[in-house]
Design a protein around this nucleic acid. Sequence first.
DNA 1: GTGAAAGCGCTAACAC
DNA 2: GTGTTAGCGCTTTCAC
Lengths: 340, 340
Amino acid sequence: MTRKADPAAVPARAITKEDVARAAGVSHITVSRVINTPEKVSPATRERVESFISSMGYIPNMLAGGLASRRTRIVAAIVPTISHSIFAETVRGLSEQLSLQGYQLLLGQTNYSEDAETGLVEAFIGRRVDGLVLTGVQHSARTRQRLKAAGIPVVETWDLSPQPIDMLVGFDNHAAGQAMGDYLVRKGYRRMAFVGGDDPRGLARFAGMRDALLAQGAPEPVHLVVPMGSFLQAGRETICRLLALQPDIEATFFSNDVMAAGAALECARRGIAVPQRMALAGFANLEIATEVLPALTTVQISAHQIGLTAAEMLLTRFDGQTVPEPLCDLGYSILEREST
Amino acid sequence: MTRKADPAAVPARAITKEDVARAAGVSHITVSRVINTPEKVSPATRERVESFISSMGYIPNMLAGGLASRRTRIVAAIVPTISHSIFAETVRGLSEQLSLQGYQLLLGQTNYSEDAETGLVEAFIGRRVDGLVLTGVQHSARTRQRLKAAGIPVVETWDLSPQPIDMLVGFDNHAAGQAMGDYLVRKGYRRMAFVGGDDPRGLARFAGMRDALLAQGAPEPVHLVVPMGSFLQAGRETICRLLALQPDIEATFFSNDVMAAGAALECARRGIAVPQRMALAGFANLEIATEVLPALTTVQISAHQIGLTAAEMLLTRFDGQTVPEPLCDLGYSILEREST
DNA sequence: GTGAAAGCGCTAACAC
DNA sequence: GTGTTAGCGCTTTCAC
């Protein structure tokens, strides 16, 4: 078997529009039209070219296309982490909606580091992505400046901002924390704790809760900051620590459902009655919040919808249109369940 | 305020190497060298060029670079779904390792559809990704052929294959299922069930379990196929259905820990003693397996390591070197906990 | 309906 | 150490 006859042999160079054009007896621009604007080609040539495209296994080089057209059909998303499902739903929504229109998703993870975000933004601008989805509204000066200079559509998510870079889809973290604080006070809890990360959204939720408690005459809540990472375990360990240090705490509000679920599991293990001895509340209304025992009171937000809406905004802009509501507040609501 | 004077104005066109070169009084190729091979430029010019790069906010166009160099520094990964953490850990490992070397991750989700995978593979080849990471070893003929023709490094993951496309890092799903079957028989269980999706890996795990039970003289296990989606809930519902239909089942092996955890939660809710009345086993050793009550016996595999190893294999190949062990079996082990 | 020419911004190969 | 030349494969613009 000679090298040449081997059908599985890897060709030295990929097939180009030129190759297809030559085979079909047309110019490469006609091949381009068959792919991008088929209505501008006569049915006869179109069919011939199409048959050659498929028989030769031609796959257009989108790098070259993007360079020439200045459109890559790539959207980048930057999230703190893809694990533990908090942002995974948003990414899923984005990816679903985008792929419907032939766009691809470039993914970046910051591990909650602003420097990492800055680096990723530059890398993605270098890739000439058509649009960018950011988590949160707090970004380095350098990021904001680069984004402005690049002039590409940007959607900030998961928060609201007085000065958005461009578009935004999220909800008010401070108000959501406040609403939970109000709710817990109304339920009769007074001595409370908040457990969350030191990211801007977690801090805003705490501030909201604290404001609510103080306004209602309840004591300042204990604030426990946990490193981002293994969430269930963090919830379990935190509730232990809390009960040891401040046995009089009556309710704990966790910045996310996974941590709250970890706490609920630990309470079950140690025979701590929830909510009688300790009430538990979470954030995000993830699946685990309804499934754990007792089911968790939580703040319902629309993680998946954030992704869908962000994608729609971007697609509208790519289409040359103006987004009617570039600042979208998806809101939140308190979901009362058995844990409080 | 004139348009021109506005410092925030978006320039008509992005800054190029040419622009930087002109400002620094060198040729564009020198700018290119400063960025790609700084050691080949004299310290004096290097510093000057660097200062212009940073003051002008120049970001290289990697589209053009990729077209010219035939290297995009992009790796694509295709997973069934990013939600529910089963593959999220692999993606995280990949992304971590790749970003260390300046590579970016293009992500695709198939929702367990082979057609979707085929489409994504073509789209990614069109983007001229430097490498591709696939989930599983079962792919359409078209996918295999496209991949072969493209000649790019490919890593298949999460399974073993007699005929890998290129490289592979995974474990033997059949053997893992068998090991769990053997273990459960050894523990004295006889009437058992398996719950999983109809994806190749889930089916292989079931087949392994069945082979083990039959070989040991236990009855054929009941096989419940569940749609992929909300896993905790699926686990809960399945265990209800199972107890209603086959009350004599003594142990259930779930194709993933999240489903098994859902079942454990439901058993707790209904006062079903685990493992006395019903033993539960999961797969993957996710965080939830250790945190749920009772902690779940599971098959430990290395989801994160799969991503790391895949990235290392690709990087080695990008570096022009040969991967010493292109077929990597990461193995598995039975982790015995309280649920069996 | 189809094609020719120009150029997107960069790197590779080869000069000097 | 630095520059010149020639593409990479495509789309855009303008002819025909």
